[in-house]
Design a protein around this nucleic acid. Structure first.
Lengths: 229, 229
DNA sequence: AAAACCCTTCGCCGCGCGCCGAACTGTCCG
DNA sequence: CGGACAGTTCGGCGCGCGGCGAAGGGTTTT
């Protein structure tokens, strides 16, 4: 019997501090040692050791730039595998309560390279309701091209081996939202259009006023209602 | 930020003994404490503690029957998540060498509820070559119904939310084979027809002589050639 | 009833690892 | 050059956990 080295990966994610760091890195951005240390609530020395371990496990890659070292997830497969894990992870009701208490702050955030959070879940539901998106064989298929252009989505001529639009399970809602290349296109376009902004020190994304207007117009739905849903 | 409880899951799979047990359970069958203890190379007391932990993490469920306790994976999602993890796990070249040395013993085995191993990978390649199976949007779609009936596969009228045929990455080969409901149908039919048998104490499946004949006839391929490939 | 068997609980040992303080290297700035 | 800052290495502390032996329930067999 061949045993894949789960234990190496498992040991990498078995610690709460490393877990916290990985969750931070799931945003898709690169973070410095100090930032990740702060996120995990440990000293930089400790964080350094953790990141070394994550690097050895192949989950994280580091890039030196000046006197700073930027850490990021090793690739989309890593993010995807972690998503799958999150899907079967026991719900942390305590943290979820804190989340609800925090209000709309985390209504929208990025999940590796695409939009996530309740708002993204709601958007996906609208797409499905309108038939713009069809769930098929566990993957998403996009229907009419015209509608999507408004959201900055350019449909590819041929879908390669990787699904263009992949369903991704949201941690907080346990419902699907759009990942894959299409998800990335939407996020990129939203950032480029100024619809959403990255928070400087806080995690999560901020929906700007123009962004709210644009989404309301395109989706013909109140974003307030979306957020409330 | 909401952090899914990776750490609980991570701790569950961070240990080599538990890893070994999980790999055993990936076969899909239920195992007793003693069997799993032997597989992990520890005493029954230790295995009992491990299984308790896996149960608390929600990865494994136990069922008491007489004086024995049967353990199995909590569900297909768990198996799927572990598969994803295995896909990004570093290859264990040492064990792989042992595997090759062991010869054809593990040519065929079950992966939770469907066929796996080099032979299953080769079968899948045949399906793809013949156009019986088409990879689309990251899922498998089955083409003509007639051919499949010989393999015991009944195509569903409507594909539900879950993909009927899901590609599954083989641990040893790192190549795709057929999972999902279709994979289960094939395995069930192969067992019912006596094409393959479960080994009593060894892991893995045994391809019987009638099974070899049947597969050669249906697939029009030499199973020896398949196994050698 | 006694023996055999499966599993679990308890108590203990020893290693491993997460954590920090202190000290060192390397980079950027004035 | 000297100070500030990011990151790493080293040493030591202490908890946590995997491991086993011994003992205790339950169930099946003789």
């Amino acid at each position: 019997m061949i045993t894949p080295r789960f234990d190496i990966l498992g040991q990498a994610i078995s610690d709460a501090s490393r877990t916290q760091m990985l969750c931070e890195l799931m945003e898709g951005r690169a973070y410095t040692n100090k930032e990740l240390a702060a996120a995990a609530g440990v000293t930089p020395q400790t964080a350094s050791a953790h990141l070394r371990l994550l690097q050895d496990a192949g989950l994280v890659v580091a890039q030196k730039r000046g006197r700073c070292v930027y850490h990021r997830l090793a690739g989309p497969e890593v993010a995807h595998a972690l998503e799958q894990l999150a899907a079967i992870a026991p719900a942390d009701s305590l943290h979820r309560a804190q989340q609800r208490k925090a209000g709309g702050l985390a209504q929208l955030r990025s999940c590796y390279d695409h939009l996530a959070g309740p708002l993204a879940v709601a958007m996906t539901r609208v797409f499905l309701d309108r038939g713009m998106l069809v769930e098929e064989q566990g993957a998403f298929r996009a229907e009419p091209a015209g509608e999507w252009l408004k959201l900055g989505v350019v449909l590819p001529e041929k879908t390669g081996r990787q699904p263009f639009a992949r369903p991704c399970l949201d941690w907080t809602e346990r419902k699907l939202h759009v990942a894959g290349p299409m998800g990335r296109q939407i996020l990129d376009h939203a950032l480029a259009s100024g619809w959403v902004k990255r928070h400087r020190h806080k995690r999560g994304l901020l929906l700007t006023a123009p962004g709210r207007v644009a989404l309301e117009q395109i989706l013909d739905v109140r974003c307030g209602a979306l957020a409330a849903a």
